Computed example of a mutant assay.
Amino acid sequence: MGFILQTRWTRREPAHRRALDAASDRRPGVSTRACWRASATADRATSSPPAAAPRNQQQQAVAHLRQLLARPQLLQMPCCFDALSARMIHRAGYPLTFMSGFGVAATLGLPDTGLVSYAEVQQRAREITEAIPPTLPVIGDGDTGYGNAMNVKRTVRGFARAGLAGVLIEDQLNPKRCGHTRGKSVVDRDEALRRWAAAVDARATADDIVVVARTDAVATHGLDEALWRMQQARRLGADVLFVEAPRTVDDLQRIADALGDMPLLANMIENGMTPVLAPEQLQQLGYRIAAYPLTLLSASLRAMRDALQVLRTGRPEEVSSLLLDFAETRDIVGFTEYDADSERYRQMQAGE
């Protein structure tokens, strides 16, 4: 069975990979990364008619995300977990964000161990995308796709309907776990490829949503197996590749050397299993996205813990020193915009 599946997938060589090989042959000395950018354009030209102008917010977000990925600069991507954290990321001027599965589970009082349902995650995605403009594209954590290949297709399409610009699909075995915890398992090669193939297939009916393929095979099978899986995900047509939890800087470099013709994501979890590098270092290694999945969540938890401890002392002045000004708080949650709109409608006269 495995051999038959592998043979079938081998025949599904995406046009952008064929164009990459041809570009490399015709243009000696041109970097592989530059060839990828040129070949990605060739892939779209040969596989589909010219795209229409984005019509809705999700399509605008997808178009914006693809423009960001086409640039050479590293993208810092703080991760959100609800609408308010997404709004804070937007106010801070970051170019994109990721809806963290760990963070979403945490806001429900749960560990990231596969306990949160597809419907709950999709609803959270909708809340997030409705709170921010499409100029802050959101990639959603689709985990394992919530089942088999057909479930993956439904997840990808549902995430697009919720307004997400990208979706991550990984190869962990259900129930999945946070990538930087022990006890992980991954599905076999065939099932992993089925998931990524289904996600890529669903992209055509999900407004060209960006597909991020993630492997957790480093922890269970080693880096060589993780690289093999990512090479297959690239061949199937994934847009971004993500090897979770490499242990050393040398491992990060090996990943970039093997896969650097594609946008690569590095997961920067403070006190996690992967060394946390400065953005400049990651860009030099060849990465395109630096994700910070727990920074805002951990900072929020610490701030709440500290405020509760100070509150117990009964000294209001000490509590106030920990807080935002009330006017800024009102502005962040939307009172300024609401009041301006409300006043505009109040002043409208009949016939206007």
Rank of each mutant, 00 (worst) to 15 (best):
Gln347Val: 02
Ala303Tyr: 00
Ser31Ile: 09
Gln59Phe: 08
Met304Phe: 05
Ala52Cys: 10
Val200Gln: 02
Glu127Cys: 12
Ala92Asp: 08
Thr248Ala: 05
Thr10Gln: 13
Gln123Ser: 12
Val138Met: 15
Gly140Arg: 01
Arg154Phe: 06
Pro316Thr: 10
Ser320Leu: 15
Ser31Phe: 02
Ala291Tyr: 00
Val249Asn: 04
His221Thr: 03
Ala38Ile: 06
Asn56Met: 04
Thr181Gly: 00
Met99Trp: 01
Thr32Val: 11
Arg18Lys: 14
Asp257Lys: 12
Asp306Val: 00
Leu115Gly: 03
Arg234Ala: 15
Asp143Pro: 04
Ile289Ser: 09
Pro72Lys: 09
Val212Ser: 04
Tyr345Pro: 00
Asn174Glu: 13
Ala327Gly: 10
Ser320His: 11
Leu193Val: 05
Leu173Val: 10
Asp250Val: 10
Leu282Thr: 00
Leu308Ser: 13
Ala34Ser: 12
Asp43Met: 05
Leu84Pro: 02
Leu69Cys: 04
Ala256Val: 06
Phe102Ala: 13
Asp239Glu: 11
Ala63Ser: 15
His90Ser: 09
Arg229Phe: 07
Ala92Trp: 11
Ile89Cys: 01
Pro137Val: 09
Ile139Phe: 01
Pro133Cys: 05
Leu241Asp: 07
Arg18Thr: 14
Leu65Met: 14
Gln59Lys: 06
Trp9His: 13
Trp196Lys: 07
His221Ile: 00
Asp208Glu: 15
Thr10Lys: 10
Ala92Cys: 10
Gly93Gln: 11
Ala258Ile: 07
Asp171Lys: 04
Arg302Ala: 11
Pro28Lys: 02
Gly334Glu: 03
Ala206Glu: 09
Thr336Gly: 12
Asp216Cys: 11
Ala70Asn: 15
Gly334Ala: 05
Ala19Pro: 01
Val212Arg: 03
Cys178Lys: 06
Pro49Lys: 09
Trp228His: 14
Pro95Thr: 07
Ala206Ile: 03
Arg254Tyr: 03
Glu130Asn: 10
Leu227Lys: 06
Asp224Val: 06
Leu20Cys: 06
Ala238Lys: 07
Arg33Cys: 06
Pro72Asp: 15
Thr32Ala: 15
Ser117His: 07
Asn56Leu: 08
Val333Glu: 06
Asp188Gln: 07
Tyr118Arg: 15
Cys79Thr: 13
Asp331Thr: 09
Arg302Leu: 09
Met304His: 02
Arg302Cys: 00
Arg182Cys: 07
Val210Ala: 04
Ser85Gln: 09
Gln172Val: 00
Pro279Met: 04
Leu164Arg: 08
Ala198Thr: 13
Gln6Asn: 11
Ala34Asn: 08
Val186His: 02
Leu5Ser: 14
Arg126Tyr: 05
Gly179Met: 02
Thr215Gly: 08
Lys153Met: 15
Gln349Leu: 14
Asp141Thr: 02
Tyr146Ser: 06
Leu75Phe: 03
Leu75Ala: 03
Ala119Phe: 02
Gly286His: 05
Asn267Ile: 08
Ala233Pro: 05
Thr336His: 06
Ala51Met: 14
Gly179Trp: 03
Gly93Ser: 07
Thr144Asp: 08
